[in-house]
Every structure is written in structure tokens, then in C-alpha cells.
Design a protein around this nucleic acid. Structure first.
Length: 940
DNA sequence: CTCGTCACG
DNA sequence: GACGTACGTGACGAGT
């Protein structure tokens, strides 16, 4: 549109891309990829190229830019360091695998035929500022592609920002929302508020909110500083009066330079189409196969043939397209025999089942899909039934399917053959389905768990997500076949032709993921984790889940009725107190009644505009007996009602529905790859959160029972996370206390408060206990204060004293955060990696990430320990009439014949206490406490 | 389908 | 008195 235009001027639209932001985002969004041929770190370059390509593709419309440039930081030393040496001084070191990628991102930019700009001694932000001023003055429009708040000062007439991550334009309104002032005054606010990330000092105690207030009141920074003496609040006044010079320096630090020298003209930034003969060779050299192909498609030229990679087989899945033509239905004995032969010849097979339910204990097999090479897969329909719900929908099987017995007879030898590897995505599911048909699937690999071992913390590990991420392919959604919500049908009602496309594709995707992941496991150094902590858990958990636990329906039912009665009474009382009926279960209605109608003070509205009415809020209200007797009583009744409501709806009612009609027992399902830290998660139902803390709730455990002649045995690790903390942080006093079997919380209290153990009070011990737990969670003064309901300053004092007394804890925390910042992950003692992609983010996200990073190695190591115990357990108790039923993070629950109870307790205890060895030698002992009884309540 | 709430370690 | 804050989960009912 500007081909006939000579200079840069009216009608032109300049895009300025913040290159560094692209690089860092790319680096943290992707796993640490390396170039296959020589191991060169390439992840950031790959992400950068993908982003540039997406940018180019996305900017072809009517509002396309006429000019564009990517701007980079040249070096970390700039004129700002002369003004203030500490500027950006506390920036963490660059990850070592990132720096060598910087020159490649410049090459990539040029390869896309986009101007690539950097200037010695200036930050990218200054060049962006200079260019955008020039372009605007010339009458053009400017879009800055970045979300960096430091650039927001440039926004104004003709200049906007665009946050490519959120796909959102940032204009004056957004700036006002963020800084409370117009873009012209942003530097004034930043100068006052400072910036801890860039080490801009600002005025102590003044944040953005206060700064915006002051600037709005006084007009601008200079006026404010001149008249600072008039400020009423003494702290603010002093902060400004005493730091005027520092604030002026801060302003020079945040003020972008619009006069950086440029050795090129705006015209030279004209948008040019990428030249295939430049771009494609670059991408090929980087060995970005998928991107090369996509770019070639977009440029409508043939993709260059990649250099023969040493691992040609691994390269295959990324190149082959997904096509239904490669998928077939197997409906004859001959075809099935052929597939069996193919599997035997290959030595491995991707395997997937289709069933009528997500609940493996109720699901019926509908079909099986297999794949032995990328792009070629089959589906064996077995249990498809006629009709989609019409009047004549019969239960009769669709014609032309092989009988189940025949399919099993042909496949069982393969599925059980120790020389043939069976590959699945979430194999526990398929293994359970097959186990119920008498087939033990082994040996196995599981792509979900491979991904979990490599990418834990980066993303989830469901097949659709993995396929999109790593194969650039979006599989057919199951919704397309069975619908969703109320109108959903079961898979057996899906037409065979449709099922073939869907199911064969799943096996195909699984196989390709495996081909991709298998060699990467090793490079990511998580093979041991996968092979010792993930994969062997599959049969162990499958066994536990299938066995289930006996739950007494009558007990639950009686409790439900009792709860219902009590709730009805409370409800009447609550309505009386409220002055009318309302939905007691609605936090919204409750908040309005408490704070608006009854006038209880202190109502706080959350971001959705509703009052917070959580238990802590209601508890505070119950103490207002003098000023708000009605509100206090209402809050007290409500707390009681809520407790009963929770117990009834989530436990006594819902658990009854989970009793399997065939087995009469409750079968949970554990997700191995659900929790980031390595913990298991229990679903449908969740048996890891059965009440125990309150007396009323604990009675629910009376319904979990052992059958006649058997007992439940519960074994739980004592203080396992604190012991691990004592080990990893190397705290002699804690270790000694554990070795001598002392009360760890009392010991901590004694050390901290200088109280002899024999004079310990429960209150002091309680505080020390809260601090001990706080440390594991990445303690903060605020959090501890809220937990203990003490003033913040006091809580901070506790923490300071704790760190003073146990300096190793501080060091552990600092080291862990530094490690996470440098590597993007933290590790358990057993080598499990937990990625922390947010750790280098700005804003409040970083705080979360830091605390999670501190907690993850501790919680994760404990999770690894009990996993190891569980994996060894079947062997250890093989001779006993005993079954492991449940895991609750630090507890294992067994059902055992009365005669074997003592032997089981001893054997299982030994396994648990020795579970860390030999891989890790803990410098603290692990101890296990045991209990037994007819019910879980009695065993605990 | 998201939010607030609350059950567990 | 910058922000918002203990870590990790799953299930429920209400309200959009």
C-alpha cells in the first residue's frame, strides 16, 4: 500500500518489536531443546522463530504495518550505569544455555527479512523510544509490540502498544489503569515508586498507588518535590524531602532517551516479504523441521530436504502428515493376524482402548487401536452397538465386528509378551480395562509419564495437549463423536467409520509422541526418574484401584440423615436471625445479609464484587458479640451449617454413589501426572481428603471398614517433610532432634524462645509448629501473621529469629531460588525436575513461583520416597494375605487378614522406613507410625 | 464454566 | 501503606 510512497510519513504504520521480550518468552516457554546434530542449545531460537513467523502470518490484513523493526539490547552496560551504578545490578545471571542463542536470534530476524537493530550503550527501550518519536513526528502511526511497563510512557497520540501474549492492545486507558496517571506522567510515578527488579531506588515506602495519588494532586514530579513540605502524612513527606535527589536520579533512570543516535532512516525499515532462498536455508540449518515445512507452505515453495539426520527414525513423525488414509478398520481374522505379525516384526506397538466410560471399573471395551509406524494405525471395533437413541435402538452388536474372545485370543500373547513393548498414553487406564478381561499388559511405556518426567511444571500431559505442542497436530476432539453434557452418548454408539478415524489417530499420536520422547528422556536426564518413580507405579496403582476399599452404605446413610436434620434446624435459626429466608448455601446472599442488612462492619469485597464470607471471616464476626450480637450468632450458626453441609454433600451423600454395584467397594483413581511436585492426586472419588481434623468429620472414617476376619492397617511417615528439610538444608539441631526422637516442634520452640523443654507451654509449641510448616511453604511475615492471627511485625520477628537460629534454612531458600532462576527448574533428591517457568517473571507471579520453588523439592522428595515404598511393597508383602488399598501422601492404608496383621505391619514399616535407600542416604531417620482396627477411624 | 468455599497432607 | 502472599491437591453448590 505504500509502494509508491517515497519517505516515511502520513499513512505509514511502524511496528517496533521488543526482541529481548520475545527471546525471554521463548526461552521460558519451551523445554531446553538442543540441535539434534550437535547438541547446540536452540530452544529460545526455535520459540523466537515461531513467534516471528506467527507475527508475519498474523500481520497481512488491512491494518498491516508498512514498516517494521526488531530491536535488541546490545549489552547490559548503558549510560544508566554511569548515573547509578547499581542500576539492574541485582538482575540474576543469564542462564548459561541462553547467551549463545542471542546472535542466532539476530540472524533469525534478518533471515525473516526484518530490520534488526541494536546500539552500543543504549537499551532497546531507548531505541524504541527514539524511533517511535521520529515516526510519530513524521505523521505516521506506531505500534510497539511488547508488554514492558517501562515502554508505556511512550503511548500517546498515534502510539500504542500491543501485548502479543495476551493479544491485547495497550492504550492510554490501560496505562491509566496500571499507573493511575496518563502516559506523560508515567515516568514521574515510576521515579517515585522505584522498581525492585531493575533496582531503581525511588522513594522508600512509596508505591505506584501512592505515587499516582501524589502526582495527580501536584501535577508533576518537580512541583511535587518543590512543595513536598506541604504533604500532611509525615512518612510520605519525609520520604520525599529526604530523598529528593535519589528520586531525580530515579527519574533519569526510567526516562527513555528519544535522542539515541541512529545510522539508518525510517524508510529503510519498510516491510519486505521473506526471501525463501534466505529464510529456508536458515531454518533448515537450525534443524527446525516442522517450522521449515510450515514456512515453506506459507511461501508456497517446496521445503528443502533436510540433511540426513543421524536419527532418521526419530525425524520421521514430524515430517509425515496425519492422514486418515493410513488408518484402517480390522474386521477379519486375517487382517488381525497381519497386524499381530507386524507387531511381532517391529517389537513394539502403540496401544489404546475405547470404552463406554471414564470409570475403568464400570467401562466396557468397545474397541482397540494399534499403531506400529507413524501414519499407519488400525482400529479393531468389538463392542459397537446399533442406533443412536432412536426408538429401535437395540443393544445388538453392529455386524461385521470380530468377537471379543477372538480378538483377545489373538492379542493376549502379544500384549503379555515380555519381548514386545506396549506403548500407551495414560496406560494405567488401558491396563485396567485389559486386566478386567484377564490380560496383563507388560512391558509398557507411557507417553504421559514420559512427558511428566521431562516437562513437569511446564504444562499438562494430556494427549491433545502433547500432540498440539510436540506434533503440531490437533487430534479429533472426542466431543465431535460423542457430544457433550447431557446429550453425550457412549462410545459404543459411535459409527464404526468415525471411530476408526478417531481411535486410530490416538494410537498414531501416541506412537509419534513416544518416538519423539524416547531419545529426549535421556538428554533431559530423567530416564531414572521415569523408570524408577513413574512407570513402575502403574501396575501398583492399578492393583490398588481395582481392589478398592469397603465402605458401609448404611453408616453413611444414617449420618446423612442426621446431618440433614441438624441442618434443617440450623437453617431455621439462621433465617430467623437474618430476618427472612434466603439460600444459606449462597455466599453472595449471605454477604449481603451480613454486611448490608445487618450492618456488620468490616465487609471486604473480592474482585468479583461479592463479599468474602470464608470461615476466617465468619470466625472474626462471631467475636463481635457486644457490638453485633445478631451477626455474631448468625455467623456461628452458619459455620456449623457449612461444616455439616460439606460433610453431607461431599462425603456421606457422594460416597454412597461411588460404591461400585459389582464389587460393593469404592474405587478411586490416582493420577500420577496430575500434581507438579510428584504427589499423586485422587479423584472420583477423592479419598485423600476424607475428614479427620474435626471430631464430627472423623466419624466418616468409621464407614471405611475391613470385611469380616480382616483389619485395616494404617502406616504413616512421621514429619517426613520436616525431616527432609533438616537433611537438605543441613540443620544440625533439627537433625539431632530427629535422631533422638524428640518432639520437633517443642525443640524448635525451645531454641527460638529460649524456653527450657520442661517449661514448654502448648501455646509456644503451637507457634513454633506453625513456623516449622511455614518454612516448608516458603514463609512470609504476612502468611504467618494470618495463620497465627498475630500482628505482622511480630510474625516477622519470629521468622527473623528462626533464620538467625537456623541459618542453613535461609541459605537453602536462597540457593533454591537461585537454582530455579538459573535453570528454570528445581529438583528433588531423587532427580525429579519440577519446572518453575514463572520464576523470572515480573509482578506478583514471581512471589508465587519462589515459594513454590522452595516447597517443591521438599514436598517432591517426600512424594518420591513414598512412591519408592509403594513400588517395593508388592514384593515385600507377597507372602501375606494383604492388599495395599490407599495412599494419602504420607500414609499407606492396607487391608489384611487378622492373622497376618502383625507381619504386614512389620514388613511394610521396614519398606517405608528404608525407602530412600540406596539411591539417597538421608542424614535423618525416617520413622513410620502404625495403627490398626476394623475401620479407618480405628486404624488411624 | 468460573468462583468461593472447604476437605485433606 | 507498592503489589499480594504461606505449599500441594479435588469436589461441591451457586450463579453466570
Amino acid at each position: 500500500m505504500t509502494g509508491d510512497q517515497q519517505g516515511f510519513g502520513k499513512g505509514c504504520h511502524l511496528h517496533l518489536i521488543d526482541g529481548s521480550a520475545f527471546i525471554f518468552r521463548a526461552y521460558h516457554a519451551l523445554p531446553p531443546l538442543t540441535r539434534k546434530s550437535d547438541g547446540l542449545p536452540i530452544g529460545a531460537v526455535a520459540g523466537f522463530c515461531n513467534m516471528l513467523f506467527r507475527y508475519v502470518e498474523g500481520n497481512k490484513g488491512p491494518d498491516a504495518p508498512t514498516h517494521v523493526a526488531v530491536i535488541f539490547d546490545h549489552s547490559s552496560k548503558t549510560f544508566r550505569n554511569e548515573i547509578y551504578p547499581a542500576y539492574k545490578a541485582n538482575r540474576p545471571e543469564l542462564p548459561e544455555d541462553l547467551r549463545p542463542q542471542f546472535p542466532l536470534t539476530r540472524d533469525a530476524t534478518r533471515a525473516f527479512n526484518i530490520a534488526c537493530i541494536e546500539t552500543e550503550g543504549y537499551e532497546a527501550d531507548d531505541i524504541i523510544a527514539t524511533l517511535s518519536c521520529k515516526a510519530r513526528d513524521a505523521g505516521g502511526r506506531v505500534t510497539i509490540i511488547s508488554s514492558d511497563k517501562d515502554l508505556m510512557q511512550l503511548i500517546g497520540d498515534g502510539v500504542v502498544m500491543f501485548d502479543a501474549m495476551k493479544n491485547k492492545t495497550i492504550d492510554r486507558d490501560e496505562v491509566f489503569e496500571k499507573f493511575g496517571v496518563a502516559p506523560e506522567r508515567v515516568v514521574d510515578v515510576q521515579a517515585l515508586a522505584g522498581d525492585s527488579v531493575d533496582n531503581v531506588p525511588g522513594a522508600p515506602g512509596i508505591g505506584i498507588k501512592t505515587a499516582a495519588l501524589l502526582i495527580t494532586e501536584y501535577g508533576d514530579l518537580e512541583t511535587l518535590l518543590d512543595r513536598a513540605g506541604e504533604i500532611k502524612q509525615p512518612k510520605r513527606r519525609e520520604a520525599l524531602v529526604n530523598n529528593a535527589d535519589l528520586i531525580r536520579v530515579s527519574k533519569r533512570l526510567v526516562q527513555l532517551d528519544c535522542e539515541t543516535p541512529l545510522d539508518f532512516s525510517l524508510e529503510s525499515l519498510e516491510v519486505l516479504a521473506p526471501e525463501p532462498e534466505v529464510l529456508l536455508p536458515f531454518l533448515t540449518e537450525m534443524e527446525f523441521r516442522t517450522l521449515t515445512k510450515r514456512v515453506a507452505d506459507s511461501l508456497k515453495v517446496a521445503a528443502p530436504v533436510a540433511q540426513a539426520a543421524p536419527e532418521a527414525e526419530v525425524a520421521a513423525p514430524e515430517v509425515l502428515p496425519f492422514e486418515a488414509a493410513g488408518y484402517e478398520a480390522v474386521t477379519t481374522a486375517e487382517a488381525l493376524a497381519e497386524w499381530v505379525a507386524r507387531i511381532r516384526a517391529r517389537g513394539y506397538v502403540a496401544f489404546d482402548t475405547e470404552t463406554t466410560s471414564l470409570d475403568e471399573m464400570r467401562a466396557d471395551l468397545v474397541g482397540i487401536s494399534l499403531a506400529v509406524e507413524a501414519g499407519r494405525a488400525c482400529y479393531i471395533p468389538i463392542g459397537h452397538r446399533a442406533g443412536g437413541g432412536d426408538l429401535f435402538a437395540s443393544d445388538s452388536l453392529v455386524e461385521g465386528q470380530l468377537p471379543l474372545a477372538e480378538v483377545l485370543a489373538a492379542l493376549k500373547p502379544v500384549l503379555e509378551d515380555p519381548s514386545i513393548l506396549k506403548i500407551g498414553q495414560n496406560m494405567k487406564y488401558d491396563a485396567k480395562i485389559m486386566a478386567r478381561l484377564g490380560v496383563t499388559v507388560a512391558p509398557i511405556d507411557d507417553t504421559m509419564l514420559m512427558s511428566y518426567a521431562m516437562h513437569g511444571g511446564l504444562h499438562n500431559h494430556g494427549m491433545d495437549e502433547l500432540s498440539e505442542r510436540y506434533l503440531n497436530h490437533r487430534p479429533i476432539p472426542i466431543k465431535d463423536l460423542i457430544g457433550s453434557g447431557k446429550s453425550a452418548v457412549t462410545f459404543d454408539r459411535v459409527a464404526v467409520a468415525d471411530a476408526v478415524k478417531y481411535a486410530a489417530e490416538d494410537a498414531d499420536v501416541t506412537l509419534r509422541l513416544w518416538q519423539l520422547f524416547k531419545p529426549r528422556l535421556h538428554r533431559a536426564q530423567v530416564t531414572t526418574v521415569y523408570e524408577t518413580l513413574e512407570r513402575p507405579l502403574i501396575p501398583v496403582l492399578a492393583e490398588m484401584e481395582m481392589h478398592g476399599i469397603q465402605v458401609d452404605r448404611d453408616t453413611l446413610s444414617r449420618m446423612s440423615n442426621a446431618f440433614a436434620q441438624k441442618m434443617a434446624g440450623l437453617e431455621a435459626e439462621i433465617h430467623e436471625l437474618a430476618g427472612g429466608p434466603f439460600n444459606v448455601g449462597s455466599p453472595k446472599q449471605l454477604g449481603e445479609i451480613l454486611f448490608d442488612r445487618l450492618g456488620v462492619p468490616g465487609g471486604v469485597k473480592g474482585k468479583t464484587g461479592a463479599y468474602a464470607t470464608g470461615a476466617d471471616v465468619l470466625e472474626d464476626i462471631t467475636t463481635l458479640e457486644d457490638s453485633q450480637p445478631q451477626g455474631a450468632r448468625l455467623a456461628a450458626r452458619l459455620l456449623d451449617w457449612r461444616q455439616l453441609s460439606k460433610l453431607k454433600s461431599t462425603y456421606t451423600d457422594a460416597l454412597q454413589d461411588h460404591i461400585n454395584p459389582e464389587t460393593g467397594r469404592v474405587h478411586t483413581s490416582y493420577s500420577i501426572a496430575g500434581a507438579n511436585t510428584g504427589r499423586l492426586a485422587s479423584t472420583d472419588p477423592n479419598l485423600q481428603n476424607i475428614p479427620v481434623r474435626s471430631e464430627e468429620g472423623r466419624r466418616i472414617r468409621e464407614a471405611f471398614v475391613a470385611p469380616e476376619g480382616r483389619v485395616l492397617v494404617s502406616l504413616d511417615y512421621s514429619q517426613i517433610e520436616l525431616r527432609i528439610l533438616a537433611h537438605v538444608a543441613g540443620i544440625p539441631a533439627l537433625k539431632q532432634a530427629f535422631e533422638q526422637g524428640h518432639d520437633i516442634h517443642a525443640m524448635t520452640a525451645s531454641e527460638m524462645f529460649n524456653v527450657p523443654l520442661d517449661q514448654m507451654t502448648p501455646e509456644i509449641r503451637r507457634q513454633a509448629k506453625a513456623i516449622n510448616f511455614g518454612v516448608i511453604y516458603g514463609i512470609s511475615g504476612f502468611g504467618l501473621a494470618r495463620n497465627l492471627r498475630i500482628p505482622r511485625g511480630e510474625a516477622q520477628g519470629f521468622i527473623d529469629r528462626y533464620f538467625e537460629r537456623f541459618p542453613g534454612i535461609r541459605a537453602y531458600m536462597d540457593d533454591t531460588i537461585a537454582f530455579a532462576k538459573a535453570h528454570g527448574y528445581v529438583q528433588t533428591l531423587f532427580g525429579r525436575k519440577i519446572h518453575t517457568p514463572e520464576i523470572n517473571a515480573k509482578g506478583p507471579g514471581a512471589g508465587f513461583a519462589k515459594r513454590a520453588a522452595i516447597n517443591a523439592p521438599i514436598q517432591g522428595t517426600a512424594a518420591d520416597v513414598i512412591r519408592r515404598a509403594m513400588i517395593r511393597m508388592p514384593q515385600a508383602i507377597a507372602g501375606l494375605d494383604a492388599k495395599m488399598l490407599l495412599q494419602v501422601h504420607d500414609e499407606l492404608l492396607f487391608e489384611v487378614a487378622e492373622a497376618d496383621a502383625a507381619a504386614l505391619t512389620q514388613a511394610a514399616k521396614e519398606v517405608m522406613e528404608a525407602a530412600a535407600a540406596p539411591a539417597v542416604h538421608l542424614s535423618v531417620p525416617l520413622t513410620v507410625e502404625a495403627g490398626q482396627g476394623q475401620s479407618w477411624s480405628a486404624a488411624h
